[in-house]
Simulated scan of single mutants.
Amino acid sequence: MLKSEARAAFLQKRAEITVKQQTIWDDLLLIQFQQLALPPVHTAFSYAAIERRKEISTDALLGYLEFRNPGIAVAYPVYDPATSLMEAFLTNETTVFQVNEFGISEPQNGTVIPPRELDLVLVPLLCFDTHGYRVGYGKGVYDRYLKELRPDAAIIGLSYFEPVDRITDTDKFDVPLNYCITPQRIYEF
Rank of each mutant, 00 (worst) to 15 (best):
L28T: 02
L29V: 00
L30K: 05
L30H: 13
I31G: 03
Q32C: 02
F33Y: 06
Q35M: 10
Q35N: 08
L36D: 02
A37V: 12
L38A: 04
L38M: 08
P39S: 09
P40D: 05
V41I: 15
V41M: 06
F45D: 02
F45T: 06
A49Y: 06
A49Q: 09
I50Y: 06
I50F: 11
E51V: 11
R52L: 04
R52A: 07
K54A: 08
K54Q: 08
E55T: 11
I56S: 07
T58K: 00
T58V: 02
D59H: 15
A60G: 07
L61Q: 03
G63S: 11
Y64N: 04
L65H: 10
L65V: 05
F67M: 10
P70N: 11
G71Y: 14
I72A: 08
A73M: 11
V74Q: 05
A75D: 01
Y76F: 13
V78R: 08
Y79W: 12
D80P: 12
P81A: 00
A82R: 11
A82N: 09
A82Q: 15
A82Y: 08
T83L: 10
S84D: 14
S84A: 15
M86P: 13
E87C: 13
A88Y: 00
L90A: 15
T91H: 06
N92C: 07
N92M: 06
N92D: 12
E93D: 14
